[in-house]
Design a protein around this nucleic acid. Structure first.
Lengths: 205, 205
DNA sequence: CACATTAACTACCGCTCGGTAGTTAAATGT
DNA sequence: ACATTTAACTACCGAGCGGTAGTTAATGTG
């Protein structure tokens, strides 16, 4: 048993593309255009991977999208967890959290909103197998946001029910903000909306 | 010139279908399934009107949808204007407004969210000719909500900037609420979200 | 080397999509 | 009665859709 046993590659011809890099590319397409407006031909063009390779690697378009959604969910929840960590304690932590978002929403992929939010809206009422996912994603998001709000009350001054209410309000605000951004709001409108929430959060002191 | 001159029908063969009734029917389809997931075949089946009649009456699918969107916008803004009237003055008026919504969102067409919100999310980043519509619709909605919030401050106790901030917050909340509803939230989750907003509004007294 | 395994690549399939030409039917105008 | 106008209805089109069979090209294994 030499070191070569560690370096065991899979048997046949090796992949010419990096799976993660391709998934990143395809994620952006679905994110920007939505599920049903993105064709397999689009995915082929964007990735440079031939169609049958996509199918043999990821299965059907629906399976591919399900995997991309899960991947995106994991990444986004990790990101939120870290943002909550970095936010710091106290009401100022929530302020910092929101200010961090402000910069991300006006350019780049931020303009497309959140893939989970968009998909939860698009797939409702049509897609089989995606019904429960909107509920699940909001639960995951709520957990993180509850952590953010909870650590803003170091002395335990707020009751659980107050924390829960603030969490629900904050999450609903986050959803609405994402929708505003995706709906084509300019930097001014986005700024005003965030300012409005910051003012409300300030009353929690 | 007898009375018959008042009863002047158009020259050719009369329509067998009622245009408004058909538009109502098609609106529900687009509302539930979204624009791109609704095919012309779906529209034919739902309306009972033959395909070429739909085309000769409404033009292309895109034109038909644009008309339905405008129609829906007008109807919804009328509805909101009336809801604001009925709400009455004071903070209790806003409470009443929200309570009125609570019942509408748990069943029937309310479960599908708002066609304008859904479409503003779906059409962003793909649809040509629909870019500015999300901004326009949020402006129209904001005007109504500003009226609601303004009439809750009879003594002029709040400055314009405070009114504007509350309006932005309330509108963002409304968008998030619609998204939550369309995302498959049950009556409990919807109730909690509305409760959270009611609590915030109560601090405006 | 032959062989098994896996991926790249080509070519194609059946179906649905949005859209339209052409014909028949029902009303009005002269 | 006859022409005109408008709508209902039939039949069809080219393009794009998601998906697949079959072949060629690399790799590891014996």
């Amino acid at each position: 048993m030499g070191v070569s046993s560690m370096n065991t590659r899979s048997r046949g011809r090796p992949r010419l593309f990096d799976e993660d890099a391709v998934l990143d590319e395809l994620t952006q397409l679905f994110w920007r255009k939505g599920y049903s407006q993105t064709s397999m031909a689009d995915l082929v063009d964007a990735s440079g991977v031939h169609k049958s390779s996509l199918y043999s690697t990821f299965g059907s378009k629906e399976e591919l999208f399900a995997r991309i959604l899960q991947r995106y969910l994991d990444a986004r929840m990790d990101m939120f967890s870290k943002l909550v960590e970095q936010a710091g304690p106290g009401i100022d932590g929530i302020h910092a959290f929101l200010e961090r978002l402000r910069g991300d929403l006006v350019s780049g992929t931020g303009q497309w909103g959140c893939l989970l939010v968009n998909s939860s809206s698009e797939l409702s009422g049509t897609a089989p197998g995606f019904e429960g996912f909107g509920v699940a994603f909001r639960q995951a998001l709520r957990e993180r946001l509850r952590g953010l709000i909870r650590q803003a009350e170091p002395g335990g001054t707020a009751s659980n029910s107050v924390t829960d209410q603030r969490t629900d309000l904050f999450m609903t605000f986050m959803l609405g903000l994402n929708l505003t951004v995706r709906g084509g709001a300019d930097e001014n409108e986005i700024g005003r909306v965030i300012d409005a929430m910051q003012a409300t959060i300030d009353t929690w002191r």
